[in-house]
Design a protein around this nucleic acid. Structure first.
Lengths: 191, 191
DNA sequence: CCAGTGTGAGACATAGATGTCTCATATGGG
DNA sequence: CCCATATGAGACATCTATGTCTCACACTGG
């Protein structure tokens, strides 16, 4: 019997599958379980052995997204140095996850009443804290609420991910475009 | 026989239905034809008499969105006065359509290969033209491409619409938040 | 060599949405 | 008053994705 659930080979495979599912759903958010399986190079049966169903898959992707966000937040050392530099580090750190984030961001629009995942609340909190810190240090304007800035950051990350996916923006410019727009805006500061 | 297709009462009803469908799908993008019908206060059969199917409905919504965008672009008098003021007028004019835009924006991510609607191309063009004009007049920075700014504007409009829908941003602040962030960014200009 | 295990392929039932149809009803104009 | 038209309600077949199951096959370690 193999009901002992050892973290043997399955664990590695599962992560591979999850990654490829993320990559596919980022491009086509309505992809079938069959398509997800094919994209991962496995059969639908095996996919179901890893994830009980589509819900479970999306939940796992959400967990992955949260995990990567938290990791990026940690890596960005959010409370060190000027807030604007922290924002820059954050966007750079989160760039590889932007596609997944974009998928989850729109997917979350569906979870209507469904009590929003606690993980996101924690991330929102850390983001708003960063913007609030910038405001309190006099670095950021105070007429834009931290909640809106957080929301806007999500939106820009999603836009950036799609723009890159469709070739409207070069991959190497992703971080720059987002950070510069978010921090400085489009209006030219008369230098 | 009534195959003459007079724009009698149907035309008015159709628009009403379309509006209510837009309002519903903005909140729940996966709403059923049945839900759309109920939301419009009509039966599914009648809904089908107006729109051949779900595809047709989405197409009609897309046409409506394009129409409203064009109208907003016209109303904003995009090539008069400073570009930043034109941006302001534009966002204000487009605010009522922001929810529909957000729906279509994410929906368009699904139309993969499907030749992107020509109407959007024209709107994109007008938007990029505005940003380009601002750059050429020295009003806007030139290191952020017009294509990216256009994409970012869509993203901010969608984020704004959702933020308002979820109560994270007050309705009355919608335009201000978007315009100020887009034009000035979050960094405080040392006044 | 062989038993255990994971896998792929495919059959199968199910659920949900869709599209089409019929029929009874009400409403409005001639 | 009567007929045409639009509608609502509902039955119906269909289609697609899903979830479950079985079975044969390959690999791997003892």
């Amino acid at each position: 019997m193999s009901h002992m659930g050892y973290p043997c080979l399955m664990a590695l495979d599962r992560d591979q599958v999850l990654r490829s599912a993320a990559a596919l759903l980022t491009r086509k958010s309505t992809a079938t379980m069959d398509e997800v399986a094919k994209a991962a190079g496995i059969s639908r049966a095996t996919l179901h052995r890893h994830f009980a169903g589509r819900d479970a898959l999306v939940r796992a992707l959400e967990a992955l997204g949260i995990e990567e966000c938290e990791a990026a937040l940690d890596a960005a050392r959010m409370d060190e140095g000027p807030a604007s530099e922290a924002v820059h580090r954050l966007v750079r750190a989160i760039e590889p996850s932007a596609g997944l984030l974009a998928f989850l961001y729109t997917e979350n629009q569906l979870f209507e009443g469904e009590g929003q995942n606690q993980g996101w609340a924690r991330i929102d909190e850390r983001l708003t804290a960063l913007f609030r810190r910038g405001q309190e240090s006099g670095e950021f304007r105070i007429d834009l609420t931290p909640a809106w800035l957080t929301e806007a950051l999500y939106g820009l990350l999603a836009s950036g991910a799609w723009a890159v996916a469709e070739g409207r923006v070069a991959t190497k410019d992703f971080t720059y475009m987002i950070v510069e727009l978010l921090l400085g805006g489009v209006r030219r500061t008369n230098a």
